[in-house]
Amino acid sequence: MIYTVTLNPSIDYIVEVHDIQLGGLNRMNRDLKLPGGKGINVSRILNQLGAENTAIGFLGGFTGRFINDKLREDRIRTDFVTIADDTRINIKLKHGEETEINGLGPAITTEEADRLVSKLSALHQGDIVILSGSIPPSLGNDFYEKLIAVCRQKGAEFVIDTTGPALMDALKYQPLLVKPNHHELAELFGVNIETREELVVYGRKLLAAGAQHVLISMAGEGALLITETDVFHATVPKGTVRNSVGAGDSMIGGFVGTWVLNGNLQEAFRTGVASGSATAFSDDLSERAYIEELRNQVGITQLQP
C-alpha cells in the first residue's frame, strides 16, 4: 500500500480574471475549487494510474469536509485526522501571470499530532509512505522525523518531497526517493549550479548522505534520475504551460505509482516526467489518457556515471 501524508492541505481556489483593478470591483471570468496539498496531489495522480493508495494528514472544518468529499467522489481512500481548526484556502489568481495567496494553515494540537503518528502504526513491511510539503509551525521542525521513525520501525519505505533542513535531516534515514528541482538543489548546498554535470555532482551528494534515488526536475531542460550505479536524463514533451501547481507532485505520483505497479525504474522515470508535463499543460492535475499520450514523447538517455 502507498500512503500519502499531507500535513497542511488546502482548498485551491483558482480564480481567473482579465485584469485587476486594485481598490475597485473585479469580476471573475471563471473559478475552480480543488482539493490541494502536495500529498493529496500525489494521491490524485496515483489514482489516475490505478495505484492503490490512502491519503492521510489533517483536515478540519467545512473546508476539510469539502476536501474529503471530493477525494471520496474520485474513489480515493482517505484516513485523515479530524482537527478542531479549519483547513486553509489557497488562492491562485490568474491574470496573465499567476499570483498565489496561501493561507497560514490551522494550529494542530499535540493530541491531534499524536493521532496521526498512531495511524502509521498500521504500516507493514513493503508499504511506501510519501511525505510531501512543509511542516506547519505548530508541529515542530522534527515532525517528519517522528513519522519516519515509525516507517523504519514497521519496515516501510518512505519518499520525502520537501526542502531545506527537513530534507537534509531525513537523508540519514535512507529515503527511497528525494525530488528537488534544480533551484532547490542549489539552495540546499548554497551554490550556483549552471551545468547538468554539476547537477549530477550535487545529486550524488544526496545519495552519499543516504538517499536511495534522486530525481531532479529541470523545467524545460528535462529531468535527471541518479542511482548508485546509473544516471539517466529524460527529455520533456512539448506543450504550453498553463498550470504551475502540482507538476512536481505529479512527477512523484507517476514515478512511484509506476514503480510499484511494474517494478521498471526507467518506465517509472518516463511516466513521472510525462505526468509532471501533463499537469503543467492542463488546468488541473493530469488525467491518465493525457499521461499515456505524453509518455511516448519522453526520451531517456543513460549518461556516463
Rank of each mutant, 00 (worst) to 15 (best):
Arg44Thr: 07
Arg44Phe: 00
Arg44Asp: 05
Ile45Met: 07
Ile45His: 01
Leu46Met: 08
Leu46Gln: 01
Leu46Val: 01
Asn47Phe: 01
Asn47His: 14
Asn47Cys: 12
Gln48Asp: 01
Gln48Arg: 03
Gln48Pro: 00
Gln48Val: 02
Leu49Cys: 02
Leu49Thr: 03
Gly50Lys: 07
Ala51Val: 04
Ala51Gly: 04
Ala51His: 00
Glu52Ser: 12
Asn53Thr: 09
Asn53Glu: 09
Ile56Met: 15
Ile56Arg: 02
Gly57Phe: 09
Phe58Gln: 01
Phe58Ser: 01
Leu59Asp: 02
Gly60Met: 02
Gly60Leu: 01
Gly61Ile: 04
Gly61Thr: 08
Gly61His: 00
Phe62Lys: 03
Phe62Leu: 00
Phe62Val: 08
Thr63Gly: 08
Arg65Asn: 11
Phe66His: 08
Ile67Pro: 05
Ile67Lys: 07
Asp69Ser: 11
Asp69Asn: 15
Asp69Leu: 14
Asp69Met: 13
Lys70Trp: 11
Lys70Tyr: 05
Leu71Trp: 06
Leu71Lys: 07
Arg72Gly: 04
Glu73His: 03
Asp74Asn: 15
Asp74Cys: 07
Arg75Gly: 02
Arg75Ile: 08
Arg75Glu: 11
Arg75Leu: 07
Ile76Ser: 08
Arg77Asp: 12
Arg77Trp: 01
Asp79Trp: 06
Phe80Arg: 06
Val81Ile: 13
Val81Glu: 06
Thr82Leu: 15
Ile83Pro: 07
Ile83Phe: 09
Ala84Thr: 14
Ala84Met: 11
Ala84Glu: 15
Ala84Arg: 14
Asp85Glu: 11
Asp85Ala: 11
Asp86Thr: 11
Asp86Arg: 12
Thr87Cys: 07
Thr87Asp: 07
Arg88Phe: 07
Arg88Val: 13
Ile89Asp: 12
Ile89Met: 14
Asn90Asp: 12
Asn90His: 10
